[in-house]
């Protein structure tokens, strides 16, 4: 089995996640797309760890999962706070970053 297959798969998933972030307006779906991208990266790590026979890649996957968990928790909390205040999860309604 060639490692390139997994790399291509990861690249495709990553691209899909990226496009999803840009296309969707629902904040929860955007968070999900980000999870998708993180998973694509995890796959790449695992593939390279396999190729190099080094477990360092696995450790990194572990840390990425930690970050993903933290990010999901905080991100969802923000979404809840936003929803409470504005009754929406649409990022285009939340344009407070404009001065």
């Amino acid at each position: 089995m060639r490692v390139e297959f997994f790399l291509l798969m990861a690249a495709l998933l990553f691209t899909i996640g990226c496009v999803g972030v840009l296309v969707r307006r629902n904040a929860i779906v955007i968070l999900m797309c980000i999870e998708l991208m993180l998973n694509a990266v995890n796959l790449t790590f695992a593939a390279f760890a396999h190729e190099n026979q080094s477990m360092a890649g696995h450790v990194f996957v572990f840390f990425v999962m930690t970050v993903a968990a933290a990010e999901a928790a905080v991100g969802l909390a923000i979404v809840i706070a936003l929803f409470r205040r504005r009754r929406t999860t649409d990022v285009e309604d939340a344009s407070l970053m404009r001065w």
């Binding site: 798969m9 495709l12 998933l13 899909i16 996640g17 496009v19 999803g20 296309v23 969707r24 779906v29 999900m32 797309c33 998708l36």
Partner: peptide, 10 residues
């Protein structure tokens, strides 16, 4: 399956 499900997520 992975690609299809990812597309459907989006």
């Amino acid at each position: 399956v992975a690609i299809m499900s990812a597309l459907l997520v989006v």
